[in-house]
Simulated assay, not measured.
Amino acid sequence: MTSTPIARPATRDEQRLAPQIHLERLLNIQEIYHEPDAFQYARGQEILSQHSNASLIEVPSHWNIPDLHGNEGSVDDWTRIKRTVLVLGVKKSLQARPNSRSSDFVAPSHANGCAMACSYCYVARRKGFANPITVFVNIERVLGYLERHAKRQGDKLEPNQVDPQYWVYEIGENSDCSVDAAICDNVKDIITLFRRIPNSKATFATKCVNRQLLSYDPQGKTRIRFSLMPAAKAQIIDVRTSPISDRINAINDFVEAGYEVHLNFAPVVYYEGWLDDYTDLFRQLDDTLSDRAKQQLQCEVIFLTHNDRLHDVNMGWHPKGEDLLWQPDLQETKFSQTGGKNVRYKRGLKGSLVEQFQELLHQEMPYCTVRYAF
């Protein structure tokens, strides 16, 4: 009788190497769609030099690309497009939109779209049937706007649930900054900017571990929120993201590198046995986190909101994920501020689920403060 060998735990060096291998596999840029003026900017020239073999396709606007946006046939090439296509645009309108949950303000985008393919992602339903990364090459204009906007706010005189001391700017609403940082230095430039702004800090949520960010020296002025869910479900709906274990294993290193690190439990998906899976996740976190990481830890909890149009798109490329996400018997319609038809767990059910989640978290990780849950 032959015994089954026991798997050897990964060494620390292997844990650190695996995320970079994943990141390298995410992108293989072969086509660059670009606005006419994109290469007049230094950032555009830098990106072009890194992908000199890519085909260049000039377009009038990063929002007006018939081969990508609105092309229903591209659903069949969903992940290939994310891996091989890059769009370069020039950011025209700049606005810091007020917020009250993860940040005080949403910063003007330095990028949108993503190389990953989470099947619940709302950005896909805004951009149509393809959603590759768009990088804005006029980053200096974004940086200047942010610095002026923060200066106008003055000191933060009253603490709130976002932060007790600083005005917080969300810099990754429409993209994942960890992946964006693998393309160019836009994210590094923004983190460097907030390091010197006295009254503000940056924040972004991420599902990707990019250890290049460990060298950015944020000095406590950038808050990363690592998004987590049970690993077995992440393999189904967190498509092309870093494994949950890689994200957890990175937390201590990012704290040591000067980041504030919070957790983003989102989206929380209800299914039979969900609390058992979250118990395992919380215990994995508790076993891994250093005392320093635990002392500064907070989290946000966001239950699933889905969308009928996104459901239709997903059925064309990843129907398996919809078995988890699309549950009409448990969900009710909610119209968004922009008129979109979303679905969420029914009112009475959702309240109960939120309460159960918070009770379990407090039991397993009492040091982890919930900043907000809904």
Rank of each mutant, 00 (worst) to 15 (best):
L86R: 15
S109T: 13
S103A: 01
R80G: 05
K91C: 12
A96D: 08
T79M: 09
R101Y: 15
S102L: 12
L86I: 03
A107E: 03
V87I: 12
F105V: 04
G113I: 00
A107N: 00
K91H: 09
I81L: 13
A111T: 00
V85D: 06
N112H: 08
K82D: 06
C114L: 01
K92G: 11
S100R: 15
N112M: 12
R97P: 07
V85T: 10
L88C: 02
A111N: 01
K82H: 11
V106K: 07
K92M: 12
P108L: 09
P108K: 03
S102C: 13
S102N: 12
L88T: 11
F105N: 11
N99A: 08
V90E: 00
A115L: 12
L94W: 00
I81M: 06
S109Q: 11
H110P: 01
R83H: 07
S103T: 00
H110E: 02
C114Y: 06
D104V: 05
S100W: 12
D104F: 07
I81A: 01
R83L: 11
R80P: 02
R83S: 13
S100F: 04
C114N: 09
S109G: 08
A107Y: 07
A96M: 10
N112Q: 09
T84R: 11
R97L: 14
R80V: 00
H110L: 10
Q95F: 15
L86C: 07
S109H: 10
G89N: 03
K92Y: 08
S93I: 11
N99K: 14
N112C: 07
L88G: 02
N112V: 04
N99F: 07
V87A: 03
A96R: 07
L86W: 14
S93W: 09
N112T: 04
Q95L: 15
L88P: 02
P98Y: 09
G89M: 05
F105T: 05
R80C: 06
V85M: 12
R101N: 14
G89P: 02
K92R: 13
K82R: 15
A96P: 06
R97A: 14
I81N: 08
S103R: 07
G89R: 03
S103L: 02
C114R: 08
L88S: 04
T84F: 01
V90Q: 03
L86G: 01
